[in-house]
Nucleic acid binder design. Structure first.
Lengths: 137, 137
DNA sequence: CTGGCTGCAAATCTTTTGCATCCTG
DNA sequence: CAGGATGCAAAAGATTTGCAGCCAG
């Protein structure tokens, strides 16, 4: 893919499949998720390669790491500013493209020089709301 | 301590020392931090006990877990609503007691039933700003 | 060609668990 | 004195690393 040329890294088949999987992916996958998906069609793929590639992409600002789930790391190909909601039931993460006014923080951020911010919401996703309701008696 | 009676759990010396360490603690310690601090004066303390106690306290809503640092889990004895800023240099986490207007999210939260939210800021703390500046030539 | 990339296995780190023993309530 | 708590060691997961061989540029 021509548009990856600018990445300045070698475009191996492994990397191309990782990039292809991430493209327009809204699932906020973990390294394991990516590995499992790719290993189906690419049996020699190694989990270590996935980690190394994710590290490289992150370092070059091509993906972001999401620290909202303490269990494992999730990655997000959407690098523009946005926020997330995580379901406390199934742990699904969804994007929130919305702008919040965080300017109140300008007045006192404990001397920090702020470079970014992120809002996370916790709650029950539509699917889990149904299940939870159904289980109530 | 009388005020712990209501916790409804056995007050062993180990637990009391963990509770004492957490009381008014603004450092957002990890289990390891707590263990290291307590082990000095309480050599038989086990890291597993720290984890188990933190789990218990969290389940009872006495502490919160902070998922802002992918490296390890941090715990916060401050259970009231507040936010955090993490230093991208030294990874220090500080509290932000401030209210933000997140009501814009009411209009579209992808069908989620929201139970909580949290704002995180990233940047350089005062200490790291100095160091970074000093290193620039 | 050559340096970056891959894949395997081993290592590391954090967190959890099993279980015999202990001790608070 | 009973059931929850402790502490050890072992297990479980997630992520990283070392290194020999491979291949994209």
């Amino acid at each position: 893919m021509q548009r990856y040329k600018e990445f300045g890294l070698k475009l191996t088949p492994q990397r191309l499949s990782i990039l292809a999987f991430l493209e327009n992916n809204k699932s906020h996958p973990t390294a394991e998720d990516i590995y499992r998906h790719i290993a189906k069609k690419f049996p020699t793929m190694s989990l270590a390669t996935v980690y190394k590639t994710l590290e490289t992409l992150k370092a070059r600002g091509r993906i972001k790491e999401i620290t909202i789930d303490a269990e494992k790391r999730h990655f997000d190909p959407e690098t523009g500013r946005h926020h997330h909601a995580i379901c406390t039931g199934c742990k699904k993460i969804v994007d929130i493209f919305m702008d919040f006014d965080l300017s109140a923080a300008d007045t006192d951020l404990r001397g920090f020089e702020i470079t970014g911010s992120h809002v996370e919401f916790y709650g029950l996703c539509p699917d889990c709301r149904k299940t939870t309701t159904a289980n109530k008696r």
